[in-house]
């Protein structure tokens, strides 16, 4: 409202409750997690305070390398698939009449908020032998008998892309809804067809937005932990699954924490990069 700086101590009063809550329940837990990642694991108990790098040293194993590599490749694939479909979709969505736009947004919000459990259950039903899409193919005469398509890498990629798609649309929506319509008009006046103008004018104009969105969706997909278990084979399990497994079932909190710290560093670096890219575009 104003650019006035707080005058009295009492002006800071509204800040107290949020500051305390966020510090105690976010900064402190985060700090504890970082500390635990250096603790020593005690068989049969939780852990004991220490300063060892053993938990980080385990990253150097082949198994960990494979899981990490797979998680990164999977997240990258999901990001590319989701953005490739979502970008033209969001462009068309933002140009719809208001009423229909709102209907789409309600549908997208309802799907994006669905739990991974629900998405996983819905897709494994769709990929099942008894209630799945193969029944449709059999009815059309394209297949001889229905079969189960899950668990498999394809099922996992489909489920994750489905889960990420509405999120991607909502991340892209502000940029595409605010896109200057005269850009397109100018291209059309100069004789470009709508698809041609879209590819040669809109896409290049928003290339930084696209890059930033790819990174956001990449981080989002990196966080998936239930879909790999529900739709993928054990060889398709990601770093998030491994962290949960170590923390809950192997009771190895220090190792889980070390992996989580590593995941934070990767995510933070990527989010920072996407903010940087986004800011560059805002400045142009």
């Amino acid at each position: 409202m104003t650019t006035a700086r707080p005058q009295k101590l009492a002006d800071y009063a509204p800040l107290v409750f949020p500051a305390v809550m966020l510090t105690v329940f976010f900064v402190v837990p985060f700090g504890i997690m970082v500390a635990v990642s250096f603790f020593r694991r005690v068989q049969g108990a939780f852990y004991e305070p220490d300063f060892v790098l053993a938990n980080y040293a385990r990253f150097l194993s082949v198994f960990f390398g494979e899981v990490l590599g797979f998680s990164l490749v999977l997240a990258a694939l999901v990001a590319v698939v989701a953005v490739t479909i979502a970008f033209p979709f969001t462009y068309l969505l933002a140009r719809l009449p208001r009423r229909r736009q709102v209907l789409w947004l309600v549908a997208l919000l309802s799907i994006v908020s669905l739990s991974e459990v629900i998405v996983g259950f819905a897709w494994s039903t769709l990929f099942s032998r008894t209630a799945g899409i193969t029944n449709v193919l059999v009815a059309l005469g394209l297949m001889d008998e229905p079969m189960s398509l899950s668990p498999s890498f394809g099922a996992l990629l489909t489920g994750l892309s489905y889960h990420a798609f509405p999120y991607t649309v909502l991340v892209l929506y502000p940029a595409l809804a605010r896109l200057d319509p005269t850009l397109m008009e100018a291209a059309r006046t100069l004789g470009a067809s709508p698809p041609c103008a879209f590819v040669t004018v809109v896409v290049p104009a928003l290339r930084n937005t696209i890059l930033a969105t790819l990174i956001m969706v990449f981080v989002f997909a990196l966080g998936a932990y239930l879909l790999p278990q529900l739709l993928g084979r054990p060889s398709n399990w990601t770093l998030s699954v491994l962290i949960t497994d170590q923390a809950i079932y192997q009771s190895n909190l220090p190792f889980a924490a070390a992996m989580a710290v590593f995941l934070v560093l990767v995510s933070l670096a990527l989010v920072g990069l996407s903010l940087l890219v986004g800011r560059k575009e805002a400045a142009q």
Partner: peptide, 30 residues
């Protein structure tokens, strides 16, 4: 109010949602 340092809490309020949820979950567990 104009208090740039208080933006820190805005960042703190946004961070748990952007990071992979398993990290926030593990932080709470510890």
């Amino acid at each position: 109010w104009h208090a740039p340092w208080a933006r820190l809490f805005q960042v703190l309020g946004t961070a748990p949602f952007i990071l992979p949820p398993v990290i926030t979950a593990l932080g709470f567990l510890s």
